[in-house]
């Protein structure tokens, strides 16, 4: 999959390589912090890769993912944001998705953007505890401690 290999290759693209429209949306809206390889930044930006899909295994988690500030305030219309979110999950965390995961609908995204989370950190902490309780992530793992450390 070209998109995947490009995304994971990060800035190592040759000048002739062309990014797809959804990759470009990721680059402009997410990549600065979550990075091209989806590994985030230790202690401040959660990793997406191999992690973000876990949230879809919890009903509240599915909702959480599209109500965080970075998603709600992304400078994209609802259609492109929906495409981006579904691409992002499929690209960076396909293994962790809920078995019955249905892609986000434009309607779902539109509604979620009207309800930004006021207490993101608290909700996230609660969801992480629940994921740990279900044995889906090991104790201590929260997507931040395992994010990329400064090189």
């Amino acid at each position: 999959m070209l998109a995947l290999s490009l995304a994971l290759a990060g800035t190592a693209l040759a000048e002739t390589d062309r990014v797809t429209p959804v990759q470009e949306d990721y680059a402009r809206n997410c990549q600065g912090c979550h990075r091209a390889d989806g590994m985030g930044a230790f202690g401040s930006v959660p990793r997406l890769r191999g992690f973000v899909g876990l949230f879809t295994q919890l009903p509240e988690g599915r909702d959480y993912l599209i109500r965080v500030p970075g998603v709600v305030w992304a400078m994209l219309d609802d259609e492109r944001l929906t495409r981006l979110m579904n691409w992002l999950l499929a690209t960076y965390s396909p293994e962790e998705l809920a078995p019955d995961f249905r892609p986000y609908s434009v309607d779902e995204i539109r509604r979620a953007r009207k309800r930004p989370l006021a207490d993101v950190q608290q909700v996230r902490a609660r969801l992480i505890v629940e994921l740990q309780r279900r044995g889906l992530v090991p104790p201590g793992e929260d997507g931040l401690v395992s994010a990329r450390r400064a090189e």
Binding site: C33, S44, V45, V68, P69, G70, V72, W73, P116, L117, A118, D119, V120, Q121, Q122
Partner: peptide, 25 residues
């Protein structure tokens, strides 16, 4: 800004940090 956004509340009378108020972006 961490880059998550919040506000730290400091009681300058008691010279004490009170806590953090989360802000939705």
């Amino acid at each position: 800004l961490s880059p998550a956004t919040s506000v730290s509340l400091v009681d300058v009378q008691r010279r004490a940090y009170v806590g953090e108020i989360e802000a939705p972006g």
